[in-house]
Simulated assay, not measured.
Amino acid sequence: MTDTEMNEAPTTASTTSTTPIAKLAMVTLDAPDASALGDFYSAVLGWPVAYSDENYAMLTGPSHALGIGTIPDYKRPDWPDDGRKQFHLDLAADDIEAAAARCIELGATRADPQPGETWVVLIDPAGHPFCLSDAKNWG
């Protein structure tokens, strides 16, 4: 997705409804170690860990939460994606390269290949790809 496309809102009837059916409360990731991945995302996002044990961790953000569940026999997503990855997190940063360097210090790796020029794809310690993009592009 280009920077221009990120700022263009779709105008279909299904996206212009004034009465929401529901609101996003939390995104939950599967992982081999919920507590460890919770610590990673707490450091990346600056969100506090509200709960953590060997089976589950939850971080609370300003308007949403991030849950992480330990899954027996967890299988990491592939990179490059082979069509099984269902979603990824897009994170906004003021300085993409500085943010990427800090994430790598915390245990992420830089994905290879990199599919774009205006964002960086990283792989979290559990194998989930996530993107760092310029905060100015998110309004």
Rank of each mutant, 00 (worst) to 15 (best):
L122S: 04
P113S: 03
T28R: 05
P32A: 15
W47Q: 05
A65E: 13
M6Q: 11
V121E: 02
L45R: 04
L66K: 02
A98M: 12
A9C: 14
A22C: 15
T4I: 15
D81M: 06
E54I: 12
D39P: 05
V120D: 02
G107Q: 05
I68F: 07
P48G: 06
A50H: 09
V120K: 00
H88G: 10
T19C: 06
L37N: 03
D95G: 09
L132P: 01
H128N: 05
P72Y: 12
L45I: 08
F40L: 06
A22G: 10
A99C: 11
T16V: 15
K85R: 14
D39I: 14
D53G: 11
I123N: 01
D30N: 15
T11P: 08
G46Y: 04
D73L: 10
G61H: 01
R76S: 12
G127F: 00
R76G: 06
L29Q: 01
Y51N: 04
A65C: 15
A9I: 12
V120M: 09
S14I: 13
V27R: 08
D124R: 03
A126V: 02
S52Y: 07
K85N: 09
A9N: 12
D53C: 10
A65I: 13
L24K: 09
G69W: 05
R102Q: 14
P113L: 00
V27Q: 10
A36F: 00
A31T: 04
E54V: 13
M6N: 09
W119L: 07
Q86R: 08
M58T: 14
L59H: 03
C103K: 00
P77W: 00
L45Q: 04
I104D: 06
F130N: 01
D124H: 06
P48D: 11
Y41Q: 01
K23N: 12
V49L: 11
A25Y: 13
H128P: 03
A22M: 14
E117R: 02
P20H: 07
A57Y: 01
N7P: 04
P62W: 07
R110K: 14
L132M: 08
V44N: 00
I21Y: 09
T2H: 08
C131S: 05
T60S: 14
L29V: 05
A99S: 13
P32K: 12
S17T: 12
E5L: 14
T16Q: 14
W138I: 12
R102W: 10
K136P: 00
W138D: 06
C131W: 02
P62S: 11
T118C: 09
N7W: 07
L45P: 01
G139F: 11
T11C: 15
S17A: 13
D95K: 12
R102H: 14
E117N: 14
L91D: 03
T118Y: 11
P72V: 07
A36Y: 00
S52M: 09
R84D: 05
D94C: 13
A43T: 07
P72T: 11
Y41N: 03
I123H: 00
A43Q: 08
S52D: 07
D39S: 15
Q114E: 03
A13S: 14
W119E: 00
D112R: 05
K23A: 15
G139C: 09
K75L: 15
K85V: 10
